[in-house]
């Protein structure tokens, strides 16, 4: 495994995907004891991250910047 990114910096998709791959790895059941424990801990952290993102998220809204140059160019 590559060096895992800090869980708090992951997007929902990244965290969810990693969680999924960890579950797949554990399902295979070929991990060493140490890795199993590490994967489990990481998985739990990822699940918490996803949960927090879902519960705390607020939709952000903004408008595209409409610069005059763009209008000239596009027109």
């Amino acid at each position: 495994m590559s060096v895992p990114k800090e869980v708090e910096k992951l997007s929902y998709e990244q965290a969810y995907e990693e969680l999924q791959s960890i579950v797949d790895l554990l399902d295979e059941g070929r991990q060493s004891l140490e890795d199993t424990l590490k994967l489990f801990e990481r998985g739990q952290a990822l699940a918490h991250r996803c949960e927090a993102l879902l519960n705390q998220a607020q939709l952000k809204l903004r408008e595209v910047i409409t610069s005059p140059e763009a209008e000239i160019k596009d027109a």
């Binding site: 579950v23 554990l26 399902d27 489990f40 998985g43 739990q44």
Partner: peptide, 12 residues
Amino acid sequence: LTDLTSKLQRFA
């Protein structure tokens, strides 16, 4: 997510 979390626990 809940499903995945429970799988995580079960598999581990």
